[in-house]
Amino acid sequence: MEANIEVKKQIKANGHVHVDKVKGPFAEFVERFMKSRSAVIGLGILIVLICCAVFAPILAPYNPYESNLPIALQAPSAEHILGVDELGRDIFSRILYGAQVSLVVGVEAVTLALFFGILLGALAGFYGGKVDTAIMGVMDVMLSFPSILLALAFMTVLGRGIDKAVIAIGIVSIPQYARIVRGSVLSVKENVYVTAARAIGNNDRRLIFVHILPNVLAPIIVRSTIGISEAILEAAALGFLGLGVMPPTAEWGTMLGAGRQTIFNAPHIVTFPGLAITLTVMAFNLLGDGLRDVLDPRLK
């Protein structure tokens, strides 16, 4: 029945030929995406967050760097809806501006780590043997250090600054992605369809990128959504140590760190940046979960 309708649609669409044209792959992707509730909610929250970051200058009621010591530590009120911090700066404004830094730090660091993690993990898993031993040996050494210590070491080489922090954090988290990718590649490459692909003349590059990697997407997506929050927090930790994001720059992790001293008499200072991070992580998580399902043709 369904098949019949499809054929008719096809004929209507364009006489005969191109089967894929019935519904373009992109249109189909959008349709399936819209059906996934978690993907839509995740994307929704993310768009709101991005808007906050982009339109911070317009949306922010106060200058995020202007301190007003007399009202320091004031709890949320009508004028300052999320309260003010220890230097009397408006927290709402700082969170809006902070989104600019935090989102970029999180996404960039994870993108960097993903790129190299996938590449190295795929090579190690696919070729095995000496390649595997070499790559995973380096990864294991990196994993054996506390990541913040390693990031610090990289920072001393790279120098200070947010962009350097992003690179350091990105490099430090490569092993975690590499491990996941390697493990998944090891199991996926045993599938007969990989041998089948080799039998029809695929070269190694296509085997890895067309036949293996799309089938290891699920764990990678899940891991990288968590990775984004980790990156934000690590950037904050580096800032706290006087590297990376420096005060007074409005950034969620730094705000969280600064609010620590006053956590008992002014808990709102840590609460709201914390919530902002949680919300971001949740958004990426939902989007990731949704994407994983949308991209899996088996769940159609």
Binding site: N191, Y193, T195, D296
Partner: peptide, 8 residues
């Protein structure tokens, strides 16, 4: 197992 589940 011999057909890639991600390909049409």
């Amino acid at each position: 197992a011999s057909l890639n589940p991600r390909m049409s």
